[in-house]
Amino acid sequence: MQTTLSPETRADLAPSLPQKQAIKLTINGTVHHLELAPWTTLLDALREYLHLTGTKKGCDHGQCGACTVLVDGKRINSCLTLAVMKEDSDITTIEGLAAENGLHPLQTAFVEHDAYQCGYCTPGQICSAVGLMNEGQAKTIDDIRELMSGNLCRCGAYPHIVDAIREVMHIEPKS
């Protein structure tokens, strides 16, 4: 729903827009130079300004995980991150996960296990799983379930998502 600001507040805000500034983002090993206002999120920078639409918007509030990307190897919600904050970081999105012309082992496992249906949460799931593996916390199936619970899948592919990640992590099915 829309929150309407009071007229007094509006008068304060109306005259000016934030100034755009030159920023540099390193995404999938490529340096991009952009003119962005500070209020542009990393997610919108990727999708609307760089047309890297593999990263998805599912809520814009950090509640669904569809926008998960890797920043210096750590998984983050790109919708809760301003682009200007990540000038000095290496950002990896779903488009940059695989070696050229190939697939990342998780991507292969997701196809093999049918770990999706509509595919909209999938890039976030896969980036999140890469982050999960980098963290080194998950030892069991239950760990995977718990630590992947920030990524919603409305189609309900969870059992297959867990199967795909488990296989790549060499965790036994009944652990």
């Binding site: 697939l103 049918d114 999938t122």
Partner: peptide, 16 residues
């Protein structure tokens, strides 16, 4: 059969 649109979905190339 694995989904014929599977690679597009896991690589972010499927466009919505």
């Amino acid at each position: 059969i694995s989904r014929v649109d599977g690679v597009a979905k896991v690589t972010g190339k499927a466009k919505y």
